[in-house]
Amino acid sequence: MLTKVHTGLDPVQGVWWKPAHKAEVIWVSVAFAWCIVLFAMMPLWHWKGGQNPAGVRSRVEPKAFYARTTEFAKQYQVGTDGGVPIAAPPPGADVYLVAMSFQWYPVLQLEQGKEYMLHLSALDVNHGFSLYPLNVNFAVVPGFDYALRVTPTSSGDFRIICNEFCGIGHHTMVGRVIVVDSTGAAVADNPDATIEHGGAL
């Protein structure tokens, strides 16, 4: 039954297609079953889980996306933060966020527990959306509109770090998302930001 004792450096004589020992068969079976579990978890999470990178994906002209975003920012502007408009769209709205070297535009103000359609794209090169401190990461690719249904389940003052190298100023590229709680109170602990309540809403 067994092949002659030999190492991986020796050519193998005769037929080496021999049945494996039970211990090997058990391990290969366990490993195979585990692989099926690993595989099944992903469709299962699409079905039952709350965090999936599916979204609605489409092509878009970078300049057109930028124009749409500035229009969106103007429409829902409630203030400014360091010269960047703060946009507070109503729940359920399409929300636009554009990445460009080296800025996220605009600052977003969302409501806790409400769903939004967040559109991500880039004007120039690849960027990376990394929501701090939650550690939620998405790729932002010019020419592609990545629309994700997002429901902020916690309130606070969040940051967007760029985590895809986009040029020499990459490390200065930080954006901001404010999530107000269910009472409607803004949770803006950044003293530089000015939020005019009851703005364009």
């Binding site: 490993a31 692989c35 699409h46 990178p53 790729a139 990545y146």
Partner: peptide, 29 residues
């Protein structure tokens, strides 16, 4: 490319898992 906008979930699942983790099986062997 798992959090990229250019590909759908079915493509991502089949490819990231090397078609049901067959290459992971190889390494575990």
């Amino acid at each position: 490319l798992l959090v990229d906008p250019g590909f759908g979930p079915a493509w991502k699942i089949v490819n990231t898992s090397y078609f049901m983790y067959m290459a992971v099986l190889a390494s575990m062997i």
